[in-house]
Write a protein that binds this DNA or RNA. Structure first.
Lengths: 320, 320
DNA sequence: CCACATTAAGTTAACGTTAACATCACAGCT
DNA sequence: AGCTGTGATGTTAACGTTAACTTAATGTGG
């Protein structure tokens, strides 16, 4: 028990006992077993994090923000990817809940019935990110994909573009992509413009190359298109490079706008106009929400679900 | 005990008992506790994976390969990033070992004394990736960064370039980057060419922009440079975009070669010549090595450390 | 019909830790 | 001296599972 107190730094131990225990720990190479500790203390020290894909700078940065906040509080991240599918999300979530996480951070507001039920039963804080769900499970740290797309249309409109197209995704479970398309349509109608120029590629992650193919198709079907919004910087980048290849000047022949402020969009020539949200901060806030909800729960205080809005910015650059 | 047998599918249970137990599990929403299970059975079901950065397509793909192989075998990944520092690696490794992983997958062959000692004491299979260490800890699934850089120099030489520079990193702990620089020098000397055109940027991850600044500096200091090799596609991409911005034709004014076959290098215009290794496969092999070593260990068979070489390819594209 | 194998299910004692409570030594006070 | 409070350490019983063993029930061959 004294060793436990020394290791966890909880409770009082005489300084010289601390020294003695520390020395023996060092000598023996003793490594405390957090799984056993969690079993006894009924909190595992894990926070489960589910992202659509780990191979995506935005989600990776979010994961970093989460990790940093958790580490500071002695917690560990349990990371899983759902491949942009809510069915896979349910499977992965099921696996993760076997580790008795102290909280769960999800991406998006669209989940299977099964996932919602499991989370209900688990009785732990949940944070949904990247979205503003109509029926939040618990806490939310996100932003409106509709509003952000509308803001981008406003930007294009302001720059004088009037024949604007959208190249997005077509997966039923990609509600974030669908929301961006919805924001696109609503904003165009607000400006009394035609919102029919839409091409839907497959389910995310959409390969970069397809952005190139899609803009060619767009300009073939609607040759007077003067600006195209993309669901992601990756496709926007693919499109712009294809324009370069074909000698179509950007933005003179067609303006291009992306989403997500990826490295490639920020650094290419010309630099791609895009939207930026601080994914690292979103992760950090989400983790902090889990932590504070967790301590409140431990103190027997009832926790009010909270909705935290992450600000977004339109980064007007050279392609518009 | 019967429930345990049903859940783990180990040992024989009468079919109708299985049905009954399954029904009750469903009814109760029972979720088995893998931490407790691991405590009892003395294997946690975790494999610890340490990568320099999660926000890097190559490492993310490796992690995917690992996850896929582990999932197939009922194991879970415990992912941590070291920020390209072996000191941080030691810290993170220490934290992870508290979860009693059944194996560890590391990046690179350069580790602190502390890390090596901890791994020794842990007595679990270890796989080093991304390198061919002189003194492997245990298993290796990697490739020679020296050889790959030499192959790239050979490619440039074959294309007729004779004034070749290298833009790399300068961190002491980035031995993979240092190896690539070494391969560069050795190959140039083999061809009786000058190997002094080297610019070392800071510690990885090197921002994309610095690639641009570095190539400007390179051509200022050594104006007759006709080709530049980069330690990574990211910096190569930054350099190429800067050339575009300045109206320097690539590869006519200067040829550019990267490393890693990133999305941005593959899809930009002109497409960047680079090297490619299959990170997903490297991850998969590493995980499979952990698994087979683990089962051998459980059967009391002594495990011979194995070295698996991952093939690399030079992708000759438009920038050379 | 019995000895013996096989299959199914149950019992016990760990695994390594911590919550909760108990004890002990000693200082400070009346 | 006796009482009280406090700080330091010790004891016990859990946490949820599984390894290893035991028991019970059911066949099977001579």
């Amino acid at each position: 028990m004294t060793v436990s107190r020394v290791v966890t730094k909880k409770g009082r131990v005489a300084p010289k006992t601390v020294a003695k225990v520390s020395r023996v720990i060092e000598e023996l190479g003793y490594v405390p077993d957090l799984n056993a500790g969690g079993l006894s203390s009924r909190n595992s020290g894990f926070v489960a994090v589910l992202v659509p894909s780990i191979d995506n700078s935005n989600f990776a940065q979010q994961a970093r923000g989460i990790t940093d906040a958790l580490t500071k509080n002695g917690l560990q991240i349990l990371l899983g990817s759902t491949d942009f599918s809510i069915e896979r999300e349910e499977t992965v979530l099921g696996t993760m809940l076997r580790r008795r996480p102290d909280g769960v951070i999800l991406t998006g507001g669209n989940h299977t019935e099964g996932s919602r039920r499991m989370l209900e039963n688990a009785g732990i804080p949940v944070v949904e990110t990247w979205d503003l769900p109509r029926q939040p499970i618990d806490h939310v740290v996100g932003f409106s994909n509709i509003a952000i797309a509308q803001a981008m249309v406003d930007h294009l409109h302001e720059r004088g573009y009037r024949h604007i197209g959208f190249i997005g995704s077509s997966s039923a479970s990609d509600t974030r992509g669908a929301d961006r398309e919805r924001g696109f349509s609503e904003a165009l109608r607000k400006h009394a413009l035609d919102d029919s120029r839409v091409i839907r590629l497959g389910a995310p992650p959409i390969p970069v190359e397809q952005g190139g193919e899609a803009i060619v198709e767009m300009l073939r079907r609607w040759p007077d298109t003067d600006a195209v919004m993309f669901v992601s910087d990756r496709t926007a980048f693919g499109a712009m490079q294809e324009c370069l290849r074909r000698g179509w000047p950007v933005p003179e022949r067609v303006a291009i706008a992306g989403f997500g402020n990826f490295d490639m969009a920020r650094n290419c020539h010309p630099r791609i106009t895009t939207t930026s949200i601080d994914c690292y901060e979103m992760g950090r806030f989400a983790a902090e929400r889990i932590i504070s909800a967790g301590t409140q729960l431990a103190d027997g205080v009832s926790v009010e679900p909270e909705i935290i809005m992450i600000p977004y910015r339109i980064l007007a650059r050279q392609t518009t």
